[in-house]
Design a protein around this nucleic acid. Structure first.
Lengths: 338, 338
DNA sequence: AAAGGGTACGAAACCGTTTTCGTGTTGACA
DNA sequence: TGTCAACACGAAAACGGTTTCGTACCCTTT
């Protein structure tokens, strides 16, 4: 990198002090009009830009917000990031992104790195491993240092900070209720293992909707599928039962369910309805297109960022800790009976 | 944010100078063992972390690389980012991400922002608008300031910097050749308007493969579809012709082609083969799954980042400007005849 | 006793900027 | 002629580190 032009360079050029140059460039009344004109002209010509590091050191503000997410190659997280970037940009902040890769160790490293002065605040979605082990001392440290922190989507209840979450329970309820209302009786649920909070919540919603209509929860209709296993064969199991609908807790499970249904010669939605979660490209472009719960990742990102920036700029108005719940809604497509 | 603990704080506590503390913490031989022990113990207890801004100002290095991409909600770009982050992390760098939203203005703003001292180098994929207007003075500025710059995927030929691109022409050729070899005669091409370089290159590959087999390029089989238009009706047009294969330059176009084929009662791949570009989730999980050109976004991200970090650390070894070409390959699935 | 050499630490410069608090010069006014 | 304000600018501190270059002290050596 070439030696950049600094206040000192300019000062030397004009035989004045750096303070004079600084003031001239900020159009201070202390400097004569003539001097100001000469200096600004020179600065513009040589494309002078104040060194942001120096500014940051002085003001103790970096105008950067750090984001830690489990992974980026995931439609939902991309949309969240997109929302975060939008408000960050509007409010004059930049975004620094790190991935935990769902590993506890990487998450801790990232937190420490970002917290050591390079960001004004942190936006975090917890990694799966951290969720499983329920360790959170790295966040406790942030809170002691009073570094603004907002968690979103995958949160830790034990950490006292602002949060933005999806109403997963309500969403599970909505999806199941919709299937019941459209005449389905035997609804299979394809979910994740228990430790992933969101899966559990969606399941609770599912069970609540069934109970409300006095339908017993049939465990043989529920498949807990780990992402590492053979998805196709795991999901096939529930097709052994007599079912007329499938509620999958994510897009991919839904797509696989559709594939299996087709293989078994079932017509969608006539013989079986399928409903997914997360409104991504798969749901939109597969044929038949898939009815889903849309999660509003963009909204979630925006809200989380707003919350954080308010906190950083101390505009939260002493509201204390907030937890915002983003409600989701159903987007009805071809894989279910309207 | 709480007042953080600094060298000065510690120095005052022990009645020594900041230099002593600094040296003690870096285990300098100049400091007595006893003093070192007392100071490090204290520092550990109070969780002292050197302020990274101060370090950065002094060393003139931020250990951050800036990335500017058109959009994040896009499978290919997510994978690229993922690759970038991987090597950045391995080599001790952080990643700062900005989106141009395909707008020239935002791209310029982002470049200026990142270039004003907050990053050690820049990784850029050009926005569509910039590509259309062929304006690139903002990059010229970077080059004059000798700020390391690597462009990837969507690049500007006029800017002299390192580049990492996909072999789009070769990929177009490969896809077309494969279709021809499997017995298809009338291959429709669904591409983007001309100004998007990648679309043009893929088309060239398509035409080259046809010519090689002495087949005339039939313009009525080529649809130039803009993303803003009604994709379904635009793509429908080529189905008016007699075709036995479709080569789409992206996943979404391919998915829509499949949908149209189904609507027309055509069997895939018996009546018509479909091949896409970009190996995303749609291709993998739709049924039938879609044969695609896989682009190796992860590899691209890694290579781009390697190139950049080498440049930053001056390890490029005077190789001059490099352009790396990532070759793509075909992933055969259900939508075509193996 | 003078010279030499470790030992253990401090002073100060430096990175680039902003900002507070002088300070020298000029002109006006009493 | 002395006083005072206004003007235009400079010196220095501050942000938080690292690093170079002293230097005071003590012990050994000749």
């Amino acid at each position: 990198m070439k030696q950049k032009i600094t206040l000192k360079t300019i000062a030397k050029e004009f035989g004045v002090s750096t303070s004079t140059v600084s003031k001239a460039l900020s159009d201070s009344h202390e400097i004569s009009v003539e001097t100001k004109e000469r200096i600004t002209a020179y600065a513009k010509f040589y494309n002078y830009k104040p060194n942001s590091l120096a500014l940051q050191l002085r003001t103790q503000k970096t105008k950067v917000i750090g984001v830690i997410i489990p992974q980026i190659v995931h439609h939902f997280f991309s949309t969240v990031i997109s929302g975060i970037e939008k408000v960050a940009n509007e409010r004059g902040y930049n975004v620094m992104i790190c991935f935990s890769n769902n590993s506890y160790k990487r998450e801790v490293e990232n937190v420490e790195l970002l917290a050591s002065g390079s960001v004004d605040g942190l936006l975090v979605s917890i990694s799966k491993e951290t969720l499983e082990n329920d360790k959170f001392s790295h966040f406790q440290g942030l809170i002691e240092d009073e570094i603004p922190l907002v968690m979103f989507d995958r949160v830790l209840d034990a950490v006292h900070c602002d949060k933005v979450v999806v109403d997963d329970q309500g969403a599970g309820y909505k999806a199941t209720k919709y299937l019941l209302d459209s005449g389905c009786k035997n609804i299979a649920l394809i979910t994740t293992p228990d430790h992933v909070t969101v899966g559990t919540l969606r399941r609770e919603g599912y069970e609540r909707a069934l109970k409300e209509q006095a339908i017993k929860v049939d465990k043989s209709l529920i498949a807990e599928v780990d992402e590492k296993e053979d998805l196709h064969s795991e999901i096939s199991k529930v097709f052994g039962q007599r079912i007329d609908a499938v509620f999958a807790v994510n897009e991919i499970y839904a797509a696989i369910a559709i594939r299996i249904a087709k293989e078994k010669g079932l017509k969608i939605p006539e013989d079986i309805s399928v409903i997914g979660f997360t409104d991504g490209l798969i749901s939109e472009y597969s044929s038949p297109s898939i009815t889903t719960i849309v999660q509003h990742g963009f909204t979630m990102g925006k809200q989380a960022a707003e919350l954080l920036v308010d906190k950083i700029e101390d505009k939260s108005g002493g509201k204390g800790l907030q937890t915002k719940v983003i409600s989701s809604n159903l987007k009805i497509r071809e894989s279910s009976i309207g």
